[in-house]
Design a protein around this nucleic acid. Structure first.
Length: 490
RNA sequence: GGCCCGUUGGAGAAGCGGCUUAACUCACCAGCCUUUCACGCUGGCAUCCAGGGGUUCGAAUCCCCUACGGGUCACCA
């Protein structure tokens, strides 16, 4: 069987978008599953908006997600170069042929003229399109336009009254009529080909067998098919993936939150979580399980299970998936990733041994409460400062019970007497207090928790105390006692 | 405005004419576990598949119309 060849062909006009990342992922999964190749190509024919910076961002984001390509930018291959602006001579041959065969022609109409034509058509309730004014220009007419200083574009001559059929792998058969189309531009007046043309030449020349891309390209596809046919090129199979929408069901934009992959990276989302989430957007696994590694996705992915309807980007679910990956990640690995966030939160000053073991404890404690590593900054507030603020009256009242001063004093004395404050030692202290006072768990733990944090919930007391350390524990207990107004004896 | 695509619970979705009293996951609610919270576990959460017609012995599944959402019609990709 023929080797599957797919491509991801972004235009480097901005950071890698969530939607682009999903397209890249689906292409990657499809290719790897069939032992095929993924080609990375830059569609940089928009000279104004394309930038090297964007290209770098796209490559970095893909690598971060774990999406690698077998051929293309940076890695090379037999069909290079892989930047469209470096392939101009390749396009030129096809343009010459099209011109020669009468499938294309020079058009001298200005942008303003075309715009006016579109407006007029629109006003009549018809499809705005180019009506073909320059289709049959004589040599004299051309010469005259040239003398006027007009720079021509090259348009593709769309055959009249033809049906163009697309056999889309996810949408089924979709047909378009050429009379709705109008002759489209294949070469701009600056001599650079347009997307609809270059994409065809490249996909054909690079031997692409399957084009998986966003739904926004569906109505461009008939134009491309026309070009394939005019040139006698073999058409790839097409599969158009539905769009990703924001919470309000309109196309996902900055308005809905972050749209670039880097933004999620910076917020402390894990690449495996984002990949997992993205895969679930527009594709559904067969069984009940929804947590998959890249390898598992490669195995399970199938175009038949790609949905035709648009997917809503559900931030809650992303957070859940990310939290799941955080909780299940080996501590070593997690720590490595979390250190920058701890530093940013002002918790870790430097990487001394002592602080490192503290970092272990902090991360191990906090990991159950995080949906992304960026949350560390907020959650770590619990461990900072020597004063206590009660979250509500209920919390405050737990300290107004008769036995509380005794418990708090006892706890403080035992902590002061401890050589070192470790989870195990705190646990032992707590146990002793219960034994000595003969009080129930809730009567011991809750007052201490509130006296320490002002809150009625939070991480295990032993871990919490160990992170706080002797000085902070004592300071906070004193602060609480002061606020409630009971006597201390330590 | 023309053309194209879509519409199953709050969200992602399964479903492909009878096996559906519509899987599963997130969210939400209740219970259990736990010193508390979180995690985890158990259970609940659409009398119905945008609305209306039709085809059929039988429809979420096929057809038509309407409504709504989206895409596209660029010298942007």
């Amino acid at each position: 069987m023929e080797k599957i060849r797919v491509r991801f062909a972004p235009s480097p006009t901005g950071p890698l978008h969530i939607g682009g990342a999903r397209s890249a992922l689906f292409n990657y999964l499809f290719a790897k599953q069939h032992d095929g190749d993924l080609i990375l190509r830059m569609e940089d024919t928009d000279l104004e908006r394309s930038s090297k910076e964007s290209e770098e961002n796209i490559k970095d984001s893909l690598k971060w997600l774990g999406i690698t390509w077998d051929e293309g930018i940076d890695v090379g291959g037999p069909h290079g170069p892989y930047r469209q602006t470096e392939r101009l001579d390749i396009y030129q041959k096809a343009i010459d042929r099209l011109l020669q065969d009468g499938h294309a022609y020079y058009c001298y109409c200005s942008e303003e003229e075309c715009e006016a034509e579109r407006q007029a058509l629109m006003a009549k309730g018809e499809t705005p399109r180019y009506l073909g004014k320059c289709r049959q220009l004589t040599e004299e007419e051309k010469k005259q336009y040239e003398e006027e200083g007009r720079k021509p574009v090259i348009r593709f001559r769309v055959p009249e009254n033809q049906m163009v059929k697309i056999d889309d792998l996810v949408r089924g058969e979709v047909t378009f009529e050429t009379k709705e189309m109008g002759d489209f531009i294949i070469v701009k007046s600056d001599g650079i080909p347009t997307y609809n043309f270059a994409v065809v030449i490249d996909d054909a020349e690079m031997g692409i067998t399957h084009v998986l891309r966003g739904e926004e390209h569906l109505s461009n596809t008939p134009r491309q098919i026309l070009v394939y046919d005019a040139l006698g090129l073999r058409k790839p199979k097409f599969a158009h993936i539905s769009l990703i929408l924001g919470k309000d069901r309109s196309k996902m934009s900055k308005r809905h939150g972050s749209t670039s992959v880097v933004a999620y990276k910076n917020q402390g989302y894990l690449p495996e979580a984002l990949v997992n989430f993205l895969a679930l957007l527009g594709w559904a696994p067969q069984g009940e399980e929804e947590i998959f590694s890249l390898e598992e996705l490669i195995e399970k992915f199938s175009l038949e299970r790609v949905s035709k309807s648009p997917a809503v980007f559900d931030m809650e679910k992303l957070k859940w998936i990310n939290g799941h990956y955080i909780r299940n990640m080996p501590l070593e690995h997690l720590k490595e990733m979390a250190v920058p966030y701890l530093k940013e939160a002002g918790f870790l000053k430097e990487n001394s041994i002592e602080e490192d073991s503290l970092a272990d404890l902090v991360i191990d404690t906090l990991k159950n409460y995080l949906s992304c590593l960026g949350d560390i900054k907020e959650k770590i507030g619990l461990f900072k400062g020597t004063t206590v603020t009660f979250e509500n009256d209920k919390a405050k009242n737990t300290l107004n019970q008769e036995h509380v001063p005794m418990v708090v004093n006892l706890f403080a004395q035992k902590i002061l007497a401890s050589e070192e404050i470790k989870p195990e030692s705190v646990k032992a202290v707590l146990k002793n207090i219960r034994k000595e006072t003969k009080l129930g768990g809730g009567q011991v733990f809750m007052p201490i928790r509130v006296a320490l944090t002002g809150q009625m919930h939070g991480p295990d007391l032993d871990k919490l105390a160990a992170i706080l350390g002797k000085d902070v524990i004592i300071a906070r207990l004193k602060n609480s006692a002061e606020k409630i107004g009971f006597a201390i004896d330590f």
